[in-house]
Simulated assay, not measured.
Amino acid sequence: MITVPRNDNSVVGRWWWTVDRWSLGAVLLIMGVGVMLTMAASPPAAERIGADSFHFVRRQLLFLPVALAVMLAISLAPPRMVRRLSLVVFAVGLAALAATLVVGTEIKGARRWISLPGFGTVQPSEFVKPSLAVISAWLFAQKKLNPRFPGFLLSTVLFAAVLGMLLMQPDLGMSVVVTVVWAAQFFLAGLPIWLAVMGTGLAAAGLVGAFLTFSHVQARIERFINPDAGENYQVNTALEAFMNGGLFGRGPGEGTVKAQLPDAHTDFVMAVAGEEFGLIVCLIVLLLFAFITLRSMSRIANETSLFIMLAAAGLVIQFGLQAFINMASTVQLMPAKGMTLPFISYGGSSAVAMALAVGMMLALTRERAGLGEAS
């Protein structure tokens, strides 16, 4: 058990007594579940590409310590440092996001990744997503402090630039997450009612436009509304895995869904959890994500700094929404969407990017009384 005296005024000592240790513990538990499920789900995927059974396991075990170090290091930072870091990450990420349209690696008809020697493929949008939330929060807050500052306009321009590049890849799921988070922050910052109504209309028109423009979006929505309208193999197989697992599961290594689903170690990792470990373990994972989301929201409810409140809220919404989309699409509560489950689905860049977001979330939700940290 870690013991740190309350009068320890070192950086680590102050961090220990101000950080949300319950949320931190829940994140560490999720990481542990992720290692277990990667070991369970990834061997068939590795064998399909001609690698040895533990190829993905070794890579995930290589990236998770890096992700953990990133998360803990950033959680030590004061709000001002979080804002500066976000600016750097956003600038680099936006350039990389633009580069995917030119030199990106095409996978399943989409250009969302850039190949880096020795690192594999990186999805820049994963890093743009949390950094945009922090920058938008600062711009909104500055607008409230100085009405003449064009914070709303600048944030809208940045959001539109990111959204446009995401739709060109195309990546509708990430576009929805970025839009929901930005709209929520704008609303919390005091969005005028007429803008809220107009924004809702534009969002609805955008969804209709995506349905009419992108054939894969149309196919997924039609299959969701009418499962008999077309091929629905992955979702049906995932649902069958949950039924086979029951309450307690078939046991580690006894599942068959991981050999049938190409994305069992990424988008459909919860299907493996349901089949091998049962409904109870799936509910525990769900409760861990819900606990982190709700607890973090409760910690910022009385925050006096508008920037900290908006930035933390945006990061928390991102975290909870991404987990919800992954789990809901797995059990057919919404159309299937390729989105990873934070810290559980396989993916090195996804784990590091999520660690960046959670590290900033932990930094911004620390207790500020007596710290004297500028926002």
Rank of each mutant, 00 (worst) to 15 (best):
W113R: 01
A328V: 05
M334I: 05
G151I: 07
A161D: 08
A203P: 01
M168R: 05
I317P: 06
A204K: 09
P79H: 12
T266W: 01
A73M: 10
A374G: 13
Q185W: 01
A141T: 10
A273C: 11
D8F: 09
A160Q: 02
G25P: 00
E231F: 04
G253H: 02
F277G: 13
G251I: 02
F291G: 05
F214K: 04
L287W: 12
A229F: 02
G104T: 05
L341E: 11
W17V: 04
P44C: 08
I2W: 14
V181H: 05
R148Y: 04
A353C: 14
S115R: 04
L239Q: 11
E126R: 12
A271I: 10
G118T: 10
A357S: 15
Q60C: 13
N9Y: 09
L158I: 13
R80V: 08
V352F: 07
L207V: 13
K258I: 07
P147Q: 09
F149Y: 13
L68F: 15
S42G: 10
I107G: 03
L87P: 03
L85S: 07
N9E: 14
V176Y: 07
V358C: 05
R84E: 14
S136R: 11
M81P: 00
P335E: 02
L172Q: 11
T38W: 01
M31Q: 05
A273K: 09
T213G: 01
L310H: 11
G230Y: 06
G13P: 08
T340G: 14
V285T: 10
A273W: 04
T266K: 02
I107P: 05
L132F: 13
G251D: 01
C282M: 14
W182L: 00
A336D: 03
S305I: 12
T293V: 00
H216I: 01
M339H: 08
W22T: 04
A229T: 05
E367Q: 01
S305M: 07
A271L: 08
G34P: 10
F140S: 15
A160W: 03
Q322D: 06
A69K: 08
L279N: 07
V178T: 11
M360H: 03
P227S: 06
F152Y: 15
F214G: 00
N236Q: 15
G201L: 12
M334L: 13
D263W: 05
M297Y: 06
L94S: 11
N326K: 00
N232C: 00
F159E: 03
T365W: 01
G209D: 03
G34Q: 05
A259K: 09
T340E: 07
P5E: 10
F54A: 10
S115C: 00
E106R: 04
L72T: 06
V27Y: 04
P335F: 04
F56A: 10
V178Q: 07
L306A: 03
L158W: 07
N326F: 00
R59A: 03
V12E: 06
I284R: 05
L72P: 01
S329E: 09
A46M: 08
G120P: 02
F307L: 10
L116H: 03
A98H: 08
E240V: 11
Q185A: 04
R112G: 01
A323D: 03
S53Y: 12
V11M: 12
L163R: 14
